[in-house]
Nucleic acid binder design. Structure first.
Length: 278
DNA sequence: CGCCAGGCTTCTA
DNA sequence: TAGAAGCATGGC
């Protein structure tokens, strides 16, 4: 996206290809919260950011220019040509409806460890409680920063016990979090390789962790490793596939099937005329 | 009270 | 090797 302007600690971009209301609320991230004035605040790395709509622009504050270029540009995937990708996806009639329903969804490129850990917590769970567990995880084991806490690293969690994690109230998932932390901290699972190796190899690498199956692995790959070809299949996507793609998802769109998945997920759950028929 | 929540592991036939 | 049960917790 070339219409991103840095201006005295404020980043302006257009609101056409980035709508915070759907991007932050479509189930891909858990550390952004809506403020009373309609803006969003969330922690990315070591900074608390705020994203606010102003007319047809978005204003992102909380980062200096160096931080923006090094961390936020990749996080928001600002250098990817979303309009061009969406044009291709819209050659499919179902995707055209899904994209028109909420055109401002972007796939965030989050930290791989944070994403993996978050989606381990997400299993058989609902979004408000997922956010609560993650909040307590950061407050208990992360580092304090201005306005909140960082997400604890795998190294910070490795070596802890299930009893140590009791304050999170994460239930049966605590042992999975610890297994992930240990395997990542001792390099038994190599997160750095996941963005470059073949997709199946990346999934199998992640599934060495207890409590990580195909769905959690694909979410970590799509939302945390920039693997836009990863296609997480949950109950909603299963319904979409069964009804709209009985012969399988179009082969020619697989390169960006992860982006397509997120539009379909949001569409199936939030478009009333579709959701109520499932 | 029972059911469900962006699943996965374990048990069973 | 498919299919169901069990899993912690909390909201409704």
């Amino acid at each position: 996206m070339n219409n991103v302007i840095y201006n005295d600690s404020i980043i302006e971009t257009d609101s056409l290809t980035f709508d915070p209301d759907v991007t932050f609320d479509c189930g891909q991230c858990f550390r952004w919260d809506k403020n009373e004035d309609g803006s969003w605040s969330g922690i990315v790395g070591t900074k608390l950011l705020t994203v606010a709509k102003e007319k047809d622009k978005l204003v992102i504050s909380g980062a200096n220019e160096t931080y923006f270029n090094k961390f936020l540009r990749p996080y928001f995937d600002f250098d990817r040509d979303y309009p061009a990708i969406l044009e291709v996806l819209k050659t499919d009639s179902i995707l055209r409806d899904a994209i028109d329903f909420a055109p401002g969804i972007r796939i965030l490129h989050q930290n791989p460890w944070e994403t993996l850990c978050s989606f381990i917590i997400s299993q058989n769970n609902n979004i408000p409680r997922i956010k609560g567990i993650i909040k307590r995880l950061c407050e208990t084991f992360g580092e304090p920063i201005d306005g909140g806490c960082t997400f604890p690293s795998a190294r910070q969690l490795a070596g802890l016990s299930v009893t140590d994690l009791a304050p999170l109230r994460s239930g049966f998932r605590a042992k999975y979090i610890l297994d992930a932390a240990e395997k990542v901290a001792n390099s038994e699972v190599d997160l750095d390789s996941l963005s470059v190796v073949p997709l199946d190899d990346a999934r199998n690498e992640l599934m060495k962790i207890k409590g990580v199956g195909p769905k959690v692995a694909d979410c970590a790959l799509l939302f945390g490793c920039g693997r836009l070809d990863a296609f997480p299949i949950d109950v909603w996507i299963k319904r979409v596939l069964a009804r709209f793609y009985p012969n399988g998802f179009p082969e020619n769109l697989k390169e960006y099937s992860g982006i397509a998945q997120q539009f379909l997920f949001h569409y199936a759950r939030n478009c009333e005329s579709i959701a109520k028929t499932f």
